[in-house]
Design a protein around this nucleic acid. Sequence first.
DNA 1: AGAAGGTCGTTTTTT
DNA 2: ACGACCTTCT
Length: 697
Amino acid sequence: MPRRIVLRRDDPSPEGGDLTIDYRGELNEQQAAAATAKGGPVLIVAGAGTGKTRTLVYRVAYLVETGVRPEQITLLTFTRRAAREMLTRASALLDGRCQRVRGGTFHAFCLTILRRHAQAIGFKERFTILDSADAADVVDILRTNSGYHKGEKRFPRKKTLYTMFSAERNRDQPLEQVVETQYPQFIPYMDALHDLATQYDQYKRQHSLMDFDDLLLRTLELFQQHDDIRQQVATRCRHVLVDEYQDTNRLQAELVRHFGSVHGNVTVVGDDAQSIYRFRGADFRNIFDFPEQFENTQVLKLEENYRSTQAILDLANHLITQAQRSFDKELVAASGEEGDTPAVVPATDARDEARFVAQMIHDLREGGTPLNDMAVLFRSSFNSYDVEVELNRKNIPYVKYGGMKLSEAAHIKDVLAHLKVLENPADAASWNRVLQLLHGIGPKTAGDLIDWITSDAEDPFTLKERFYSGRYVEALKELFNLLRRLRTEELPLIAQVEAVVEYYEPICKDTYYEDFPKRLQDLEHFVGLAENASNRSDFLASLALDPIELSAMEAEPAQDDEPPLVLSTIHSAKGLEFSNVFIIHALEGVLPSQYAVKDPEAVDEELRLLYVAITRAKDDLFISYPMLQYRRYQGEHMARPSRFIEDVPEDLLEPVRLVEEGAASADLPENNHQALPGSSDTGSSDESAQSNDNLPF
DNA sequence: AGAAGGTCGTTTTTT
DNA sequence: ACGACCTTCT
């Protein structure tokens, strides 16, 4: 037993008189208590808009001010955007001293650990990351080779398989249970599914690949197998802070436990009413398990809402009572301001709904509201198509969050695959993509070539005297020349990317001839991105873990420096706030989603989703829906408004009627179906600035 | 083996 | 509207 010398913590002076920030002055009592809480486990239960982020920012500042070194603080957030914003704000409080706080998403933080210790669990240090499409492609290779799909009945598709495997890991449920509850139609294939899941794991190990789940799972594995590494990592986590704790799953909760296992200083912040990632294994209950996992947890609450008017909060409070499980929450506006009653706006069809939204936004912008202080929120990314068309027509610039990502576009993935092959020559998934781009090479040939390439770890980029087939040798030679040149010349990243793009352009032109110019433009943007990255490995990782919205590229950035309007899925709008919010497509089957309606727990989650959307609004809120909906084949269909807003009293949610310009605003029930909810002259007592009455159309 | 063309089934939310 | 999968042609 080696001799032990205990390192004392030099604890900062507890109530040091020399703090530069006046915490009690700048925060309310509850916030200040949370920000300056002593070490140990702390659970902050915070309602929407109660200054959760602000409190966390001040807590970071407080810790730094009281002597914790920034690099000993680990701040785990849901997105990188959130991490960046918090660190910028904390640094602003303390003239830059918080820059070196470590942080980011669970996945990104785990990646930094794994890069250092991957060998300990049998991965190459330069393993590459599979995004969900890549992962599905790997599964597809195994699926095709296995021949399981050749049976009589339908075998699950690649995406479904990957989703199943991912669910098993994220929910910590055996595959049987996932299949029985979610995919009963595939129960007969249970053995095949097990086999494929095992093969998938082996394949990734063999080729040094990790999917998103692996980043969390392998980190846990690392800690379990190597206690010294766990200790080393946890020692550097003097304080762990976790935002959005209600949306962590068991894996993440387990990781938090490990990170905090040396110092025990873990602060988590969350709101059970805003838990919206059940599909990823999050359970709003985990926030209540926290005190059980960490003894002597201090539980603190933030209750005053600083964001919204009381009228908006009244609606939110009312809606959340519809949940099966009750949330003991009653949001109260700190400002005491009542504000305008939120409006519900039925439109004839999606096009009229879009016209309404675009017109309102146009008028508000004319009236001085900055575009980026308004948002259009929706359940699924395609719900915004009509709005996008209208915005383009009116020349209103926007960014869309939650849509197609740059790195998901086929042509970008192609280029990325070349870079990944350079990074990790064992990355068979990328080889597969790279090789099949060549004429004359399909799945079979690619597979054979890959076996041969990846078996020669020494010199993977040299074409040996084998596999000659007239159809593709020339192309193959050209590819290998490129790779070998990039491999040996140690060019800066930007030059590598340029070389790959130059090589790829003709291929791109060939395969995507219809919209080649548009794709070429994306490729140029992509080259530009490489300029800001420090090295290839970081570049590839950040594209996978912090994907860039394709629409942010397309909408030429800042023509006139006016920050654009925000279009966002509700999921991606988490944590944000806007003075005016438009929630569109509030329809049965959309919100709640048609996939949720059978399961009461899933319906609850959809309700929480609406709750999150509503509580993004500071001043004005409009919920709209089309009365006619397009269905694939049958053309137009009657749509039902969302069950969540159907029976809301009119003093909480005021009906508004859209009237076509020129038409008499008298009541003409031009629709023979479901009456418009209430007529427009339900006499709201005062027609305040924002007329919620007949909107001229 | 691969390309090309036709048919059938599916369709959310994200790291 | 798209992708997966099957059939037929090169």
